[in-house]
Nucleic acid binder design. Sequence first.
DNA 1: TTAGCTGCAAACTATTTGCCCTAAG
DNA 2: CTTAGGGCAAATAGTTTGCAGCTAA
Lengths: 142, 142
Amino acid sequence: MSAQEIIRELHSCNVRVTPQRLKILSYLKGTDTHPTAEEIYQNVSENCYGLSLATVYNTLNLLKEHNLVLELKYGDLASRFDGNVMEHYHVYCKKCGKVSDFMGSPVNEVKLEAEEATGFAIESVRLDLYGYCGRCQTKHDA
Amino acid sequence: MSAQEIIRELHSCNVRVTPQRLKILSYLKGTDTHPTAEEIYQNVSENCYGLSLATVYNTLNLLKEHNLVLELKYGDLASRFDGNVMEHYHVYCKKCGKVSDFMGSPVNEVKLEAEEATGFAIESVRLDLYGYCGRCQTKHDA
DNA sequence: TTAGCTGCAAACTATTTGCCCTAAG
DNA sequence: CTTAGGGCAAATAGTTTGCAGCTAA
């Protein structure tokens, strides 16, 4: 995703474009490692002199509100962020903490069931699968 | 679920039975409100004089490790806990924060797809649906 | 008897906020 | 030129931990 496209995305949300926001969002759109705020800060700082961690948090909250990024909370401490906002799911390794994306069959039926059963109007879904990644499977001592 | 049954559950995990643990687990098994640690503390304190919040946290962590309770983290700050550990899903109201249980079709196919696509060995699933509860649907200003 | 638990308070960590200045529009 | 945003440091909130006395087994 080019810088121009990202600028357009920000404009379309009536969000003022700043170098910090541009770089943070670009970074997130260009990785699939689901970094934490701290990791984003480390990486983006490299070409954004003087960037502060508070700005990273503020920016992530802003982007989140406009559905430009996803926040993923796992059992561990720091939230992880995902620049891919298309419906997709995640697998989480209980041993090493690795998070991988996974495109699965949409779970629309479940959405409908939920609306009927609970009376909620469902807008979005989050599906996480917990287990052990290939690397950790052999050596995991439950 | 009777106190006797809860004691048996704790024993079967080689967990020492204390009044605090008994009361916290009983409370969680007997509610479907997905309380936070603070709420558990408030409620259990009423008939457990001198209970401390740290004990609530320690106990919840212990129960979690033994899969006797589930921890649910949402966008808001405090984790919520669920004493129902059978596979079921949750709907979360983006307006008022209410969390309801929902028994849906098991998503086993998705589990298999994920194992094939990612090479992970999947052990458990968490499916959350986000939207607006009946009460909040009429008055939500997106 | 004794390993493990509790309560308390202090520590810790992720995240948020207030203030002042800079920069986007 | 005007107002939102950035940087910094201090504040906050949820959660964890160290320690000393207590208790379940």
